[in-house]
Every structure is written in structure tokens, then in C-alpha cells.
Design a protein around this nucleic acid. Sequence first.
DNA 1: CTGAAAGCGCTTACAG
DNA 2: CTGAAAGCGCTTACAG
Lengths: 363, 363
Amino acid sequence: MDNRTGHRIVPETAAPRGDRLAERHAAARYGNRPTMKDVAARAGVGLKTVSRVVNGEPGVTADTERRVQEAIEALGFRRNDSARVLRKGRTASIGLVLEDLADPFYGPLSRAVEEVARAHGALLINGSSAEDPDREQELVLALCARRVDGLVVIPAGDDHRYLEPELRVGVATVFVDRPAGQIDADVVLSDNFGGARDGVAHLIAHGHRRIGFIGDMPRIHTAAERLRGYRTAMADAGIPVTDSWTSLGVTDPQRVRRAAEEMLSGPEPVTAIFAGNNRVTVTVVRVLAERSRPVALVGFDDFELADLLQPGVTVVTQDAAQLGRTAAERLFSQLDGALLTPERTELPTRLITRGSGELPPAD
Amino acid sequence: MDNRTGHRIVPETAAPRGDRLAERHAAARYGNRPTMKDVAARAGVGLKTVSRVVNGEPGVTADTERRVQEAIEALGFRRNDSARVLRKGRTASIGLVLEDLADPFYGPLSRAVEEVARAHGALLINGSSAEDPDREQELVLALCARRVDGLVVIPAGDDHRYLEPELRVGVATVFVDRPAGQIDADVVLSDNFGGARDGVAHLIAHGHRRIGFIGDMPRIHTAAERLRGYRTAMADAGIPVTDSWTSLGVTDPQRVRRAAEEMLSGPEPVTAIFAGNNRVTVTVVRVLAERSRPVALVGFDDFELADLLQPGVTVVTQDAAQLGRTAAERLFSQLDGALLTPERTELPTRLITRGSGELPPAD
DNA sequence: CTGAAAGCGCTTACAG
DNA sequence: CTGAAAGCGCTTACAG
């Protein structure tokens, strides 16, 4: 019997699983976690003394401390940080809003932000916007409502005025990968323009003139910058660009495949392709693998195994982890009150030649 | 001249950047975000009326509501969820502790957990344990102190008794990928044993008898199960296993490379390798690419571009997203009070043949 | 339809 | 060395 049904009381260690879980469940429903007040009562001390012990503050005799510790363990007390936060102001947590945690570019970036947060004693709350501006805003504001100390945002939208009340009130904010829209905020970027320009110039240097560009939706800053890099490299070489050589849009395999196949057919097919990001590159590699005539390829973003493909894939690489680390460090500088002026930080890209970008035109 | 120095007041839109930021900074220092009390004062209503409007509760005239809304916008009010949580009990957030967000296996898993959380109106807080049991415990307890409603854990350690007080008090918990140690908790796993056994049997069916196994540290449940699958397949085929054919340990490239090279040299080299996870597989692919004699390979875990390598890499695949989704759904079932008995859920694996696993022994 | 009072579980500021 | 009181910003339970 247990105490509710009036039957025999079974020691907890011997209790059948169902009973223990029912207990657990009841506990959950009534939310009866022990509080400092409970600990104080059990230890026969005041509330403030418990607080001192829990927070390792000085001014408690060894004997008192021991009694409090015993009560803490007996009750299974754990400080409620929600209450603490309410009093102290800071939550020791930061928010990260990105496009998709499952993307191999954002995983390392997120991890890097987490490591910096950890070094500052903060937890990371993250959310994926799925490239949807409304969802980005929803997430950002939910994080603000939780009173995160700061926010790292890889924006999906291009209007961030909804953040103004938060900024005014002191929420530290750093944008990464793409700049904020309509507001003045810190941003850490890769040199998307320069990287793309160099990658395309590399293809031109290897004899190509009909070069295609397949990128993400033009409203995405990185996509627009890389396209600009492509156009600049072509213009610098005095090569006029035909409309059919550029294709921007969602980067799902179907669309990219179609775009690549169109550029590669017709009377004047491209002899080389510049792929605007890792997802595009991978799909283009698949398309090229099905064709007999060699086509040169340079992709923006490095990816695992790029060196093991035949030929190895030449890429313009950016350092996702460094992007995250830099942004997070700036965020904590803001929180320390060190930074007053929003700044734009641009990290360099690097060309890695592996074969695909050095193929001559198959004319 | 601004209001602090006593000089001319410049309208905010025209204020030099530094001044606006100084203001922002001052606001942050004093933490003076508007509260419901401020809104109530400005709108000339009671606190409870503001609460009603903010939470969309009925019983407010259109006119009153409008006045409150105006005050909210004028002040840039945003409800403080920390305070709300303190009163309501639930935080509408769940925690996810995994090994490394940057690992291509965990990214999709994390994203899947996030999607389920989102469908239940909850945010996701995640942390990487870096395969360190102490760090796992630290993270889990920090999440409990924040009073997450539930916890999804990919454990690094093998003793989770530290969670007992939390479980007793009703924190919903689901383990994923590996079971909990020393406590009774829900767990969602892949069929690591069966998957590895089938993969090795596949190599045996293609004529191999000297088959190597390279896996993760044996204290990791998945590594131990996959090794058991390997041994079982070998035993089922009546093939005695030589010690030098199995190598378990950290999966960094250096160690894996050395392990592979040792198995592939000597008087009786292996003719096939079973790689215990995605990181191992990738390194083994590199080692094999440097050798002239073909060696068969089957890897546990699928990875991008496995089909484009020469030969394509045969793998045993598990569904990381499905693992995360299943775990998160079970977590919310627990929170809804539906589940009373901890359960073990095992998801199937699948063999994908692409060439590398069908190579005959090069004897 | 509206609001004053009490309380969630802590920390702060102060007094003994 | 120790503790009672006030308050963080909300919601709950209740009264008008």
C-alpha cells in the first residue's frame, strides 16, 4: 500500500517501477521542488544563510554550512535560476538565430559561438529561421522575452527595425554572415565579394570565357555579393556576360540541376561554373559527374571530401568557426561595456586549388 | 550637445552614432526596461488589465485595449518571460545535450528536436559535452537550474545517478543514441548491433574472411554494440577473429590512420574494413585512396557525397533526424503526462550498397 | 469589465 | 556570523 491508497508502504528502492513514476509524476504536477525556504526550515537557519551557502559567499561557520549542505542533499535542492535572474538582471544566456542547424556551414559556427559563451559562463539558446524572415523575428523576440543577455543573428530578413526597442534598452547584438537591414549594428562577414571575384578570375586565368554562376536568392546578402564578385571579375577581364549564364534562386537540388543543365546545353554552353555555396557545389558536382565533357568548377565554401572527388573540387573557403568566434567575442565585449560604435568586421577568404578549377575549356 | 552635457538637444534620428550608443549603454547598465507597471501607469489602468491585454485574455473593452496597446508601443514594452516562468512553473524550453553540434550526425538530430519543440511552443537550449562526462553533468544541471521543462540527452558518461533528484521532481528526460547509466529512463536508439552485423555479413558474403573493425572508444555504447555486431557476424560465419583486426579508440584522423595502416600491412593483411562511424569512414577512405591494392569498405553512418567517390562507399545508415524527432516526441508525451513507464525504442538501420562493400578480396 | 493584494523563489540592502 | 524585510516582474485568486 502506498500513502495515497492507504495500503502497505513499500520502501522506495523496492517499489515497483509504476509507483515510483506515479510519484514522480505527481511531484511534477504540483511542481513541488524544494526551495531555499524548505532548506532553511530543515537546517534550522535563516533564508539568507542558505543563499550564502548555495552561492559560496563568506561569513558562514563550518558547522552551519555543514547543516545547510545536509539539508540541500536530503531534499535534492537545486537553485532556481529563473528566480535568480529576475533579481539579478542578467540571465547568463545568449541567443543564436541561424538558418538551419543541420547545414554543415552553421554547425561549426554554432559550436564556436557556444565555446565562447561557455568561456563567459553563458548558455546558448538557438533557433533555426529556415530562411523565413517572419520566423527570424518571432525567434529573436522570443529570445528577448527570455531576456537573453545578447543575440547573435544570421538574418533571414532585410528589415530589423523590430529590434530597435531592444537595442535601445541595451540588448547586445551582433549580426553574422549577413548585415542587419535598416538598423545600425555590429556585423561580422566573410569577404564574399572578393572571394567570388578571385574564384572567377581563377577560371578566367585558366582560359575560360563562358563562365556560369549559380547562386542563392538575390535578396540574401551573401548571394548578391558573390554575384557582384562574379560580374566584377568578368568585367575586369573584358568579358561581356550573357543573361543565361547567371541563375539565382533557391538552392534545392532540383532547381540547381535544371540551372546547370541549361547553362551546359544550347549553342554556346558555358565551359566553367562558379557555384555560389556548398549546397550548389554539391549538386553541380553530381550533374558534371553524369557528363562526359569536362567542365571546370569552383565553389564557394569548402566541404568535406572535396579533395577526394575526381577531380578534386577547387573552392573559395571561408572559416565558419572563426566567423562565429569573432561574433561571439564582440558580443561579450559589448556586454562588458567595451564597445560603443557598431563595426563591420570582414574576414578573408582563401582559394584552394584541387583540380576542378584548373581544367582548361573543353572547346 | 545632448541632454547629459547640458548642450543642445539633437533629435534622435539626427544624433551622432556614438551618442545613441552611449544612451543605449546607459539603459543597459541600469536595466531599465519598461514593465507592466510602467505600461499601466502610462495607460492609466491597473496592472492586471495590462496583463490581460498582453496575454490576449478576454474582458477588456476595445477602448481600454487600444490605450494599453499604445502605451506598450510607446514604451517598447516586452513581457519579461523570466518573471512569468517564476509564477507559472513551466519555462516552455527544453534542453539538448549532445556531443558536438559541428558533427554532421548531430546537426540534423538537433534540428529535428528543435522542430518538435517549436510545434509545442518551446525553445531549445543546447550544449555540447565534447564527449566529456563531467561537462555533460555540468550542462545537464545548468539546464535543470534554468528549469527547462525537459531534457534530451546524448550521454557522454555512463553514470547518471546525478539526475535522480531531478527525475524525482518531474523533469522529463529522454536519452538518445546511447542509454542512460545506472538510472531508469526513456531511450531512443538505432539498432547498432544489427546494423554492424549486417554490414560485416555483407563483406563476408562477398568473399572476405580477414575483416578489420575500427571503432570509437569502447566505453561509448554505440561503439561497443557495433563491435559486438562485428564479432557476431564473424562468429556466425565461423571465422576466428585475430586481435590485430580490431582497433577501438578516439576517432581522430591520426589514430584511425595508424590503425588502418597496421591492419593493411604485415603478413596477413585484412582485405576489408568495417568503419565504426562517419569520422572513421572518411579517414579510411583517405588511407585507401593512397593505396593501389583495392580494399573493401563498409562504414556505419551515411555521409554526403559517399555516392560520388570512386568507388561509391557502401554504408549502414541510421536516420539521425528520426532519432531526434522520436526522442522529442516522447519527451513531450512525458510532459503531457501520458507516459509512465520508461521505454527503449530501437530504430532500424539500412544497408546502402554503392561499390566499396562489394569489392572482392584482393588475394 | 476592472484592479488591489498576495506570492512565485530568489537577491539586495540593511540591521543586529 | 546571521536573518527579517523588501523587491525583481509577472500571474493567480479574489473582490468589486
